[in-house]
Structures are given as structure tokens and as C-alpha cells.
Simulated scan of single mutants.
Amino acid sequence: MTEITVKTDRLPPAIERFVIAWGEMGEVWGVNRSVSQIHALLYISGQPLSAEEIADRLKLARSNVSTSLRELLSWSLIRRVSVLGERRDFYEAEADVFEMVRRIAANRKAREIDPAVAALRQCLAAAETDPNVPGATCQRFREMLDVTQAVSKSFDEVIDLPTPILAKLIKMGAAVVRLAGLTSTRRTKRSAKPPT
């Protein structure tokens, strides 16, 4: 008896659930749903896909796929690859989850934190030279800039950690805080017993 394989464009349920969930999470993070779904499909597929295949599998317009692929390429989350015997472009996602997270974090920092630091520096510089701006306002600008710069520096340090160290750090979780001798003020306040 000969085995016949019927090719279907329908995604297996587990992959479909992942693609839908990744698209919804992307929207929460401010990323277009189609961009997130295409990224999810390429990440989970394990093989390069053409824009046409992506459009067929996700039931998206070809123009939407092209725009989304350009955005994913700009984030360095996917790459264009050649397939022997094919003239079309194919795409594959970064398979290393730590590298993927690192690239997302670096891009988010560049698009969100770095402009905030630049804006706060400009506001502080303008406020310090304007006699109509109260000293307390300058101090608030200074404090916000200090915190934002500290977050930016910490972000850079974490992003630059080698993957094995980053993986260990993530697995350690709250143990890192305890090891450093630090405690969360929120947790301390919640767990503090009322005075007797």
C-alpha cells in the first residue's frame, strides 16, 4: 500500500494557538498583531518560508506580509535566506531564544528608553537656564533623569551578559536579590506585623 500525504495549509492546533497568542502578546507590547504572528510562525516553523507561504498559512494579505517582514528585518529578529533552486526570498527567525529576547530588549531600549533619556537631558538643560523654572522642578527633572539613566545602564549590562550567565541569572530569580542582601520594600511592608 502506498502512503499518500495530503498537504494542507491549515496549521496544527498547537502552532495556531501559539501564533494567535504571540500576536495578542505583541499587541500588548505595542507591536502590530500581523508582525507578531509572522514572527511566531517563522520562529516555530523550523524552516525558511517565503512571503507567499506566510500569507497563505496566516491568511494575510501579501502587502501586509511584506510590510511586516520589513519591520521584523529591521528588528533583526528574522533574516532573508536563499533556497537552492528558488528565485523567491525566504525568511527564517532567530532560533536562539536568548538572542531573540536580547534583540527585542535592545530594540525596545533604543526606541523607548534612549529617547526618554535624551528628552529629559534637554528638559533639564532648558530648565536650569530658565530663571522662571523653580529649583524644585529642576530637581525633579534631575531625579527622573538619574533613574532613567540608571535603568538604561542596567539594561545595557544585562543585554551584554553572555547567554550562559544570563540564563543562570534568570533561573536564580529572587535568590539574586537575597544574595545581594537586598529586600523589596513592598514585600517588607506587606509582611510587616502591626505594632503591638
Rank of each mutant, 00 (worst) to 15 (best):
Ile44Val: 12
Ile44Glu: 14
Ser45Leu: 11
Pro48Gly: 03
Pro48Asn: 05
Leu49Phe: 02
Leu49Pro: 00
Ser50Ala: 10
Ser50Cys: 11
Ala51Cys: 09
Ala51Val: 07
Glu52Ser: 15
Glu52Tyr: 12
Glu52Lys: 15
Glu52Arg: 14
Glu53Trp: 03
Ile54His: 04
Ile54Thr: 11
Ile54Gly: 05
Ile54Leu: 10
Ala55Gln: 04
Ala55Met: 09
Asp56Ile: 14
Asp56Phe: 11
Asp56Pro: 02
Asp56Trp: 12
Asp56Cys: 12
Leu58Ile: 05
Leu58Ala: 11
Lys59Glu: 14
Lys59Asp: 13
Leu60Phe: 09
Ala61His: 14
Ala61Gln: 13
Arg62Gly: 07
Arg62Pro: 09
Asn64Phe: 04
Asn64His: 13
Asn64Ser: 15
Val65His: 04
Val65Leu: 11
Ser66Gln: 09
Ser66Cys: 05
Ser66Val: 10
Ser66Glu: 10
Ser66Leu: 12
Ser66Phe: 09
Thr67Tyr: 13
Thr67His: 11
Ser68Phe: 07
Ser68Leu: 08
Ser68Pro: 06
Ser68Asp: 08
Leu69Ser: 01
Leu69Phe: 06
Arg70Glu: 13
Glu71Trp: 09
Glu71Tyr: 14
Glu71Pro: 00
Leu72His: 01
Leu73Ile: 08
Leu73Asp: 07
Leu73Arg: 05
Ser74Lys: 11
Trp75Ser: 08
Ser76Cys: 12
Ser76Gln: 15
Ser76Gly: 07
Leu77Gly: 00
Ile78Phe: 01
Arg79Gln: 05
Arg80Val: 11
Arg80Ile: 11
Arg80Phe: 02
Val81Cys: 01
Ser82Val: 13
Val83His: 04
Val83Ile: 14
Leu84Ala: 13
Leu84Val: 13
Leu84Met: 10
Gly85Trp: 06
Gly85Tyr: 09
Glu86His: 09
Arg87Glu: 15
Arg87Phe: 09
Arg88Pro: 04
Arg88Ala: 14
Asp89Ile: 04
Asp89Ala: 14
Phe90Ser: 01
Phe90Cys: 05
Tyr91Leu: 03
Tyr91Asp: 04
Tyr91Gln: 00
Tyr91Arg: 03
Glu92Ser: 05
Ala93Gln: 03
Glu94Ala: 00
Glu94Trp: 05
Glu94Cys: 06
Glu94Leu: 08
Ala95Lys: 05
Asp96Ala: 02
Asp96Pro: 02
Asp96Gln: 07
Asp96His: 10
Asp96Thr: 02
